[in-house]
């Protein structure tokens, strides 16, 4: 739907709904305001942000724990929803604005059962159809299914590192109980591409479980520089206080990117500690690190 908001010389907003979908009252105040809300809406306190109130799960569990379960679920779906299953089986991904990036984009995708069809297709599609397989893996978290168990099944059977990395990426926003364990497993994958994907995915939900925390701590010392760096950033994003000693030791690392992001991670975990460090550290040869140190020092 398209709604016209006219902006007059006196900053008054005149809203004209062009479709029947817009049931809200037009705002006539001279200042833009959210209808029905106070001018300064309540915001989450920092405590709330760290411990969000549980909300009704938005993802539907599939309860697929092994390949046989996937095959059975697929067969059952083909019986119970044959047209839907056939449509998803034939659906083709479309080229996005980046021609290297294919993506499924159809309303039927937003159905938890779509994950079953796509998982089956992923298993059946030959490895040389790389772009299709990537798109299938990429679509799984967008089906509305709780895909942690399903991804666990597919991950263990997948020989292509690129596809394993994409499956792991799909765990980022999963609400499933096995998410953290699977990410911890992926952080030890033989492929640095998979481990890198896991470090990104791990940072996307708050309050990681101990198994994931431990795995991330180890990843900060990964043999691959990209994984090390991204794990460093994720530790900061997640507020892993136990990483602080290791992060501080990285402030002397030869890699300027690692020094920079270690300092930022310390800032995100413990601002006071970061400020204290900045007050005592000499200047760095990297200008970005120096800017970070300067900003921390100014705040003292």
């Amino acid at each position: 739907m398209n709604t016209l908001i006219k902006r007059s010389q006196t900053l008054a907003l005149v809203l004209a709904a062009l479709t029947a979908c817009d049931g809200s009252e037009p705002a006539t105040a001279s200042q833009p305001r959210i209808e029905g809300e106070a001018a300064s809406p309540a915001r989450l306190s920092p405590t709330q942000a760290e411990n969000p109130a549980p909300s009704a799960p938005s993802q539907r569990a599939l309860e697929i724990v092994d390949l046989a379960g996937l095959d059975a679920a697929h067969a059952a779906l083909q019986q119970s929803r044959p047209e839907f299953a056939a449509k998803l089986a034939a659906l083709e991904p479309t080229t996005t604005r980046n021609p290297e990036f294919l993506r499924f984009n159809d309303a039927s995708l937003h159905d938890p059962d779509a994950a079953i069809v796509f998982a089956a297709r992923l298993r059946e599609t030959p490895a040389d159809q790389r772009a299709l397989r990537l798109a299938l893996a990429e679509a799984l978290p967008r089906t509305g299914a709780q895909i942690d168990e399903l991804i666990g099944v597919l991950y263990e059977l997948e020989g292509e590192a690129e596809i394993r990395a994409q499956l792991v990426a799909g765990l980022a926003r999963s609400e499933g109980a096995k998410r953290d364990a699977l990410l911890a497993r992926a952080l030890t994958d033989a492929s640095p591409e998979v481990r890198f994907s896991a470090t990104i995915a791990a940072s996307r939900r708050p309050a990681p479980s101990p198994i994931l925390r431990d795995a991330l701590l180890l990843a900060i010392s990964d043999g691959d520089a990209s994984v090390r760096l991204r794990a460093t950033r994720s530790a900061g994003a997640l507020g892993l206080a136990e990483a602080l000693p290791l992060l501080e030791s990285r402030l002397e690392d030869a890699d300027a990117d690692l020094r920079l992001h270690s300092l930022r991670a310390i800032r995100r975990i413990d601002l006071d500690r970061a400020r204290a460090l900045a007050a005592t550290r000499p200047s760095d040869e990297d200008p970005r690190v120096n800017r970070e140190l300067a900003q921390l020092s100014q705040a003292n």
Binding site: M1, N2, T3, L4, I5, K6, R7, S8, Q9, L11, L13, L15, A17, C21, D22, G23, S24, E25, P26, A27, Q31, P32, R33, I34, E35, G36
Partner: peptide, 24 residues
């Protein structure tokens, strides 16, 4: 909910120079 209730849309309109209509 219509775009008139959208915080990001309202904010965008408020930032624009005078004289512009905005169609989302």
């Amino acid at each position: 909910e219509g775009v008139s209730s959208d915080a990001f849309a309202n904010d965008f309109v408020a930032r624009m120079p005078d004289g512009w209509d905005v169609t989302f």
